[in-house]
Amino acid sequence: MPDVPHVALLDASLDDTHVQRNFTRELDARLSIVRVSEGEPLAPWPDAGAPRADWPYDALIVSGSQSSVYDDRPWIASVERYVQRALASEAPVLGVCWGHQLLAQTLGGTVRSQERYELGYVSVEQVAEDAIWDDVPHLFTVFATHSDAVTQLPKDATLLAENEAGVQAFRHGSAVGVQFHPEYDRRCAQDMIRRKSLPDAEKQAALDTITDANVQAARAPKQLLHNFLRMAKSHRTAHSA
């Protein structure tokens, strides 16, 4: 196998939401998929004093979910504790949608339900330079689907991107959260909209954003996934030296 990072994908989805298909397609990595929402275990952290290299992963990606990060579910608390350990060791962590919100909550930020459901292809603007944005346009198009949002960033977090709906990306140390879905394709976007328990007019308005132009434009921000993998490889090199 090529020299690629070993990434644990924490699949927090509650049913078949294309998580595994999307990330398997987009990531050039050795991917260990763990259905954390079903209680599947992750590799344990090394005991105190043990070499950091005993942990098998180079990085974590936390997926989207139909749950809310503030729900009282044992598996959510378990994921949060695991992410805390990763952050404490400065391992690279990428949170996508629900994962973005979990990162914010874990680090002391605030996540709240919003009146407006952001759904469909939307525009997002970078507001700070960061390696995660290498070769990503300053203003980009991407798919979003969420009714919860980060309403207060964690202390010492850097806002990386936003739009009229609010926070769209942030960094805190080795962790990056993105509210949108860089991993989606047209098939996934259509399916996720049609599943929503929303008025038909709202769903149709979101479906109307799935144009050839928007689908093509949304290929550019997929680059941030490759940028994250590059960070994971750099982290592995640093910790194996």
Results as ranks from 00 to 15, higher is better:
Arg194Pro: 06
Asp185Cys: 00
Cys188Asp: 12
His181Ile: 00
Ala175Tyr: 07
Cys188His: 08
Arg186Lys: 14
Ala218Thr: 01
Ala205Val: 08
Asp185Pro: 03
Ala205Phe: 07
Asp185Asn: 15
Thr209Leu: 09
Glu202Cys: 10
Ser197Ala: 10
Ala205Cys: 09
Arg194Cys: 08
Gln190Cys: 11
Glu183Lys: 00
Val178Cys: 12
Lys203Ala: 12
Ala217Met: 04
Arg219Gly: 03
Arg195Tyr: 07
Cys188Thr: 14
Leu207His: 10
Ser197Lys: 09
Glu202Asn: 11
Ile210Val: 15
Ile193His: 10
Ile193Ser: 11
Gly177Leu: 07
Gln190Tyr: 08
Glu202Thr: 14
Asp208Asn: 15
Arg187Trp: 02
Lys203Met: 14
Ser174Lys: 02
His181Glu: 00
Tyr184Lys: 00
Gln216Thr: 09
Thr209Ser: 14
Arg186Glu: 15
His181Phe: 00
Leu207Glu: 14
Ser197Asn: 08
Arg195Pro: 05
Arg195Ile: 05
Ile210Asn: 11
Gln179Ala: 15
Ala205Asn: 13
Cys188Tyr: 04
Gln190Lys: 14
Arg186Asp: 11
Gln204Glu: 15
Ser174Gly: 09
Ala218Val: 01
Val178Gln: 10
Pro182Ser: 03
Asp208Trp: 07
Glu202Gln: 15
Leu198Tyr: 08
Ser174Arg: 10
Ser174Gln: 10
Ala175Gln: 09
His181Gly: 01
Val215Asp: 09
Gly177Ile: 08
Arg195Ala: 11
Val176Ala: 08
Gln190Phe: 06
Pro199Met: 02
Gln190Asn: 07
Arg195Thr: 05
Arg194Trp: 05
Asn214Lys: 04
Val178Asp: 09
Ala206Thr: 06
Thr209Asp: 11
Thr211Trp: 08
Met192Lys: 09
Val215His: 08
Pro199His: 03
Asp212Pro: 05
Ala218Asn: 00
Ala218His: 01
Asn214His: 13
Lys196Cys: 12
Asp191Val: 04
Ser197Phe: 02
Ala218Ile: 00
Ala217Thr: 04
Glu183Leu: 00
Leu198Met: 12
Ser197Thr: 05
Asp185Lys: 01
Ala189Asn: 09
Phe180Ser: 10
Arg187Gly: 12
Ile210Lys: 11
Asp212Lys: 01
Ala201Cys: 01
Glu202His: 13
Asp185Gln: 04
Ala213Pro: 03
Ala189Gln: 05
Gln179Pro: 13
Leu207Trp: 12
Ile210Ser: 10
Met192Thr: 04
Val176Phe: 05
Met192Arg: 14
Leu207Tyr: 12
Gln179Cys: 12
Ala189His: 05
Asn214Ala: 06
Arg187Cys: 04
Arg195Lys: 15
Asp212Ala: 11
Tyr184Val: 09
Ala217Asn: 05
Met192Asn: 06
Ala217Ile: 02
Ala205Glu: 14
Tyr184Cys: 01
Ala217Tyr: 02
Cys188Val: 04
Arg195Glu: 12
Lys203Tyr: 04
Arg219Ser: 02
Leu207Val: 10
Ala175Asn: 05
Arg219Cys: 00
Ser174Glu: 08
Ser174Leu: 07
Tyr184Gly: 02
Arg194Asn: 14
Lys196Gln: 15
Ala189Thr: 12
Thr209Arg: 08
Lys196Tyr: 05
Ala175Gly: 07
Pro182Gln: 02
Asp191Arg: 12
Ala175Thr: 06
Gly177Glu: 08
Ala175His: 09
Ala218Ser: 15
Lys203Leu: 14
Gln216Tyr: 00
